[in-house]
Design a binder for these strands. Structure first.
Length: 196
DNA sequence: CCCTGATTCGC
DNA sequence: GCGAATCAGG
């Protein structure tokens, strides 16, 4: 009997959300920190998904919703078997899925580094910044006009469309991708959202 | 590619 | 209740 008690005590903090942790979670979440940041703050054993899951269970998803009733697109009840408990020897892997295991460390690394930056009690008018995109030089013989674009050319616009200096990158782009590797990253990724 | 939160469902 | 896997959007 003694053993069971010891076991309970020892295992009490394995993966349980204590009141303390929940409080931290609430505070940070309400403070505007992202799930990954909160996860990194809580500890190595907590993942981003864990945080999000807990947040939802606590009925906390509304962080900044003053008087806005946004129903959030509800994809309805999607019944797609994402994971089967019984392997049942299915030899075919499907081909479409690229088997890739994501490492937790990658997320953790960047999460820990960026802490405490939720201070945004100021409203700054977003101003259109000049497209500082010309970090790459395209030789004239490589420049393409609109009509010269095809499935394999980078469609990143360069210059002012109203000027004759306007042209498209035109470098080779991978199949299915609208931009070349260089511009592909600039399309999205982390657009500096910190200024001033 | 990176990131974000949202959702589902086996455990 | 928990959270990994997955989805969907930027």
């Amino acid at each position: 009997m003694r053993d069971s008690v010891l076991a309970m005590v020892a295992e009490a903090q394995t993966s349980g959300w204590t009141d303390e942790r929940v409080e931290i979670l609430k505070k940070l979440w309400m403070d505007g920190l992202s799930a990954s940041q909160i996860a990194g703050e809580l500890g190595q054993g907590v993942t981003r998904n864990a945080v999000i899951g807990k947040v939802h269970r606590l009925k906390l998803s509304a962080r900044a919703k003053p008087t806005n009733s946004t129903p959030r697109s509800r994809p309805a009840a999607r019944t797609a078997p994402r994971r089967v408990a019984s392997p049942s020897s299915s030899g075919s892997m499907g081909g479409g899925m690229a088997g890739k295991q994501r490492t937790v460390s990658s997320m953790r690394t960047q999460s820990v580094g960026a802490t405490a930056l939720a201070a945004d009690a100021e409203y700054e008018t977003e101003r259109y910044v000049a497209p500082a995109v010309q970090e790459i030089f395209i030789p004239e013989d490589k420049r393409l006009s609109l009509l010269q674009l095809n499935e394999e050319t980078c469609k990143w616009p360069i210059g002012d469309p109203l000027t004759k200096d306007f042209y498209f990158c035109g470098q080779h782009s991978d199949e299915g991708k609208p931009y070349c590797e260089f511009h592909s990253r600039r399309a999205y990724h982390q657009i500096d959202k910190k200024r001033r």
